[in-house]
Amino acid sequence: MKKSIQIRSLVTILFIFFINSSCIKGVDFEQAESIILKPITELSLIYTSLDAPDFLDEFGLEFPSITDSVILEVLSDDFLNEYLVRADLVIEVTNSLNKDFEIQMEFYDNSNALQHTFPVLIENSVSNSPIIVEHIEVFTDSSLEALKASNRLDFKLLLLSSPTGSVLTNSSLGAILFKSKVIFYFEITE
């Protein structure tokens, strides 16, 4: 009987000892400190489609330019300010008007100071067949900082004269299509 108790105790103790001897080896939880996420997000921005009458005033005369402003609240977002490492503004313009344009994208801060601007020149289409112009504006380093400081985008279309271009009238053929998206590159770390 005594022997039986000894064996029982021994088996149980050995088993408990075995469980207690378990350990977690060869791992380093500190590694988690260096985690980096690098998502790339693309987002639709501005789009429009304009034909000749859109560029004419009530007397049928060309505007020298047309402008619209957009408040970009997203740019002043804390998350974006902290983790955005690069942004690409991708513009695609299809012009079938026989008119040259200059598109100006102007970024302003809170106090209306110009932070960043770039032009995109659009050729006229003599035969009204579509001419496609692509422009990618890359924001890194100082231009990225300028972008982060901005909260307003002025979108300007300037009408230019050129030797082969015509003056627009209500019956001018063609249209200008503007499409854009922005690609945000993030690096998220703790």
Partner: peptide, 12 residues
């Protein structure tokens, strides 16, 4: 559904 901002130019 969202495609972007479609500007309405104040000129016209």
């Amino acid at each position: 559904e969202y495609e972007g901002i479609n500007p309405e130019f104040p000129e016209f």
